[in-house]
Design a protein around this nucleic acid. Structure first.
Lengths: 209, 209
DNA sequence: TTTTATATGTTGCAAATGCAACATTTTACA
DNA sequence: TGTAAAATGTTGCATTTGCAACATATAAAA
């Protein structure tokens, strides 16, 4: 996965951040980072730690819309963060660097050597995010839980290049990702095992067909 | 929605396209535009006409992954078009301009006046695509058909700024978008009408609560 | 203006699934 | 290391849903 500063030296990263008027903020755990945010359009790079973008229902239900880890980029242009139904909570101590969108094309930055790499990285990151969403949509549009599971396993198996691999997330998180009831998913996985389609040992899974 | 050439004059658009070594191709109806595509990573702008990105199942089923209209941008970085299970078919006579990804930062282009606008537009377009995917994911993760419909109507009503508005797509297309059975969706809409939540006259819908 | 294709509306029924309410195992952390 | 928290596994049951098989209305094309 592309990082915003791929192929750019430490020294040039510092220079870029300076010219971009980047602003780095340290947060403790369980802080809503958007509650005091009055920036114009911006991108945010998660330097360390992690975040959850949460949708707060009118009934008080919480849905996790997205999770961001170290190296991820999010921003006002990408995520619908202007709604008051949405909070963005740090899951641990987290360090975030903010860059205002308009700075991305300021007079000085476009004359900087590493600017081209920076812009290419940014475009790649955004493209990867579209692709990641497309993958999830492909799974979510499957009609049955069985099809969702099998398609997910197929994609994961292709990614890992093997019919045996370890889930990168917990089954609970997978159920959320596929938007199915966790216990119903467990039941379906049991059927898949009984019918000889897959084998599991913990999160290690083998596709048998 | 942002267009790749927003705020750029006709003259400067031509200049940009020239420096970007852009390549415009005219297609007739029902052509698979990817079958003879040997480009590196690229972006494609639909100048006129429309496209369907189709996933072809091993069983011969076809799923429409995405539809692109005039003004839309897609590309190898965004859509998983390298799979042989995927075709990209023109729905009518269609004119497409291709730009290779690496040209986006060629030596000449970054010294061009309108380059900054171009890059900003590209970043905005990609961001809008992420947002559009997020919106669809938000709908697809709802557990019931009723919740999907109500959430869709809420979003559409907000977008139009009124509790009465006209669906921008057919009910058949809506069922696909929400990934529910069309007849089951019609049934659920009937219930919503009977229970007094909404009123419909053709595709004109009023939210009554 | 026919004819054809597409969209819409309806309903019975079987299958899939969410939900609830558990037990058990594993992991995190104080 | 002990304890609390999170993840996993199981099952009955009511609800939701897809599917099939229609009829009818509307839009597109010949």
């Amino acid at each position: 996965m592309t990082n915003l500063f791929n192929n750019i030296s430490e020294k040039n990263i510092d220079k870029l951040l300076h010219i971009l008027k980047a602003n780095t903020i340290h947060y403790s755990k369980n802080v809503d980072i958007l509650s005091n945010n009055d920036m114009d359009d911006f991108f945010a790079i998660i330097e360390s730690g992690s975040l959850q973008l949460v949708y707060n229902d009118y009934e008080g239900n919480k849905t996790i819309l997205e999770e961001f880890q170290e190296g991820n980029v999010f921003g006002s242009l990408i995520s619908q963060i202007h709604s008051n139904e949405i909070t963005c909570i740090t899951k641990e101590k987290t360090k975030i660097t903010y860059i205002e969108f308009n700075q991305i094309t300021n007079n000085e930055i476009i004359r900087t050597d590493s600017y081209i790499l920076f812009i290419k990285n940014l475009i790649k990151i955004l493209s990867e995010q579209v692709t990641a969403k497309n993958n999830r949509i492909e799974l979510l549009t499957k009609k049955t839980t069985r099809d969702k599971i099998l398609e997910y396993l197929k994609l994961e198996s292709q990614k890992k290049g093997s019919k045996t691999f370890t889930l990168p997330i917990t089954f609970t998180e997978l159920a959320n990702y596929l938007s199915v009831d966790r216990s119903a998913m467990t039941r379906e996985i049991k059927y898949l095992k009984n019918e000889g389609f897959i084998e599991t040992h913990g999160r290690k899974i083998s596709i048998l067909y």
